[in-house]
Amino acid sequence: MNDKLKNTRDEIVRISGVNPKKCMKCGKCTATCPAFDEMEYHPHQFVAMVENGDIQPLLESESLYRCLSCFACVDRCPRGVEPAKLVEAVRLTVIRKKGGNRLKTDDIPALLDENIPQQALVSALRKYAK
């Protein structure tokens, strides 16, 4: 792992507050994940890949935007690892970069329909933009 990757890894661990070493590789997070089918990397892989410093594929993956933040993996993990917080930290690493916004304000009007609640907009902006 080069220094740059190591720094990214350490930063992700720090801002998420997650200690990936606590993982015992049981796979309950992935078992419980409602976004499994839509994800290229699954919750247990996020934990293992961050621990191993294998970050680049995660930064480039669509999986970052499929996590529903439903916290099922957080609640059901027997070791208190909190994978969703790790996914969020990786996503922020991407979004906080210049030009890293997933959702651009200009795109929003096209996404609206008559019934869409304000909550959907603000939540999406929180998740997909800085």
Binding site: G27, K28, C29, T30, A31, F36, H42, H44, A72
Partner: peptide, 24 residues
């Protein structure tokens, strides 16, 4: 691991991970 069991009708729908095959 099994993540959740959904009792639906007379079945128990078991949602689980198969880590060696990276499947749910």
């Amino acid at each position: 691991m099994v993540g959740k069991v959904f009792p639906e009708g007379d079945k128990l729908k078991v949602q689980a991970s198969d880590l060696l095959n990276n499947k749910q």
